[in-house]
């Protein structure tokens, strides 16, 4: 078993400081977006996918588990939030909670099933489970099949923030993203995260040291799935719809691609990767299916020549952990 990342650096105060500086710069840049004239919808969308990719990265980058079905958490949370907002007419904060709860429940079930196998089988199982869910949502009445749930009311978050105003919505999404990001950062640097990394590096040794690795992997799966659900719930307010594309396997593939481009097992990589891929889709939208071809080519190029990803290469160059 070869390790995913060849250079694991110890967590030092300096590394922590570097990461906090980069985080502060990222937060400031993102907070300044509404003043720059950049299309906020694009950035909001990218933020939702960035959070999804970070959640996915928690599993692959730190637990060594490649989930090929992460779209199911985003899609499930999206559908449930959308249903809660539109049909039950719940306020936004409760709508988000419904979505997160749904993703939490789903990750408990799917984690219990998929964690039973490792490596390549784990990937195939998560993919098959997400396809199972896709067909269920295709037939279930509340998802409205091919049409999806449309025209979702945005409402007022906590009764104060009017989400129909783009700038307000932007900051709500940004705060959600940063909160999710910090939570993942905290998990990665916790004792739990350290054990997770040791499982990724050498599972038999972790077992021999007395860790019940299955439980650690299960918890990582549930955390990752729930956070992916949070991203999906946020996305409902941005896109104002929930549709089958969010549960399709191609979406799961895109999440993998974002993380791979940014750098597996890096803290900031998934964010960079999400912005790169979403921007690419935006600019190449007119090229039809060539976008798929380009995405496939990026996969091939990344795997063959660029396995560390953008942030991974930078971190490697400066011998820092980012």
């Amino acid at each position: 078993m070869t390790a995913l990342t060849d250079d694991t650096l110890p967590v030092t105060p300096r590394a922590m400081r570097d990461e906090m500086v980069v985080f502060a710069v990222m937060a400031l840049l993102l907070a300044a977006v509404p003043f720059t004239g950049v299309y906020p919808f694009f950035v909001m969308q990218a933020l939702c996918f960035a959070l999804l990719a970070c959640a996915f990265n928690l599993l692959i980058g730190y637990g060594g588990l490649l989930s090929f079905g992460h779209a199911m958490f985003m899609g499930t949370a999206g559908y449930c939030s959308a249903h809660a907002l539109k049909v039950w007419a719940l306020p936004p904060e409760l709508g988000v909670l419904v979505g997160i709860a749904a993703a939490f429940g789903l990750s408990l079930i799917t984690g219990y099933i998929s964690i039973r196998r490792q490596g390549i089988y784990f990937s195939m199982i998560t993919l098959a489970l997400s396809q199972l869910l896709y067909f269920i949502y295709l037939q279930a009445p509340f998802t409205h099949g091919e049409d999806g749930i449309q025209g979702i009311p945005q409402g007022r978050m906590f009764g104060v923030f009017d989400l129909s105003k783009p700038t307000v919505l932007y900051y709500v999404v940004l705060v959600g993203f940063l909160a999710g990001f910090l939570l993942i950062y905290r998990i990665i640097n916790s004792p739990f995260g350290e054990v997770l990394k040791s499982i990724r590096e050498n599972e038999p040794r972790a077992i021999s040291l007395g860790y019940r690795t299955d439980q650690y992997k299960f918890l990582a799966f549930v955390l990752s799935g729930t956070l992916a659900g949070f991203a999906g719930a946020l996305k409902v307010f941005v896109a104002q719809n929930a549709s089958l594309t969010d549960v399709h396997w191609s979406m799961s593939g895109e999440v993998v691609l974002m993380t791979l481009v940014g750098g597996l097992g890096t803290i900031f990589g998934p964010v960079v990767g999400a912005f790169v891929i979403i921007a690419m889709q935006q600019y190449l939208a007119g090229f039809g299916q060539w976008v798929t071809v380009i995405q496939g080519s990026i996969f091939v190029i990344c795997v063959l020549t660029f396995r560390r990803g953008v942030i991974g290469e930078i971190a490697h160059y400066f011998r820092r952990s980012l």
Partner: peptide, 11 residues
């Protein structure tokens, strides 16, 4: 898996 997924997307 990732490489062959990319090849599948291209084809």
């Amino acid at each position: 898996l990732l490489l062959t997924f990319g090849i599948a997307l291209i084809v």
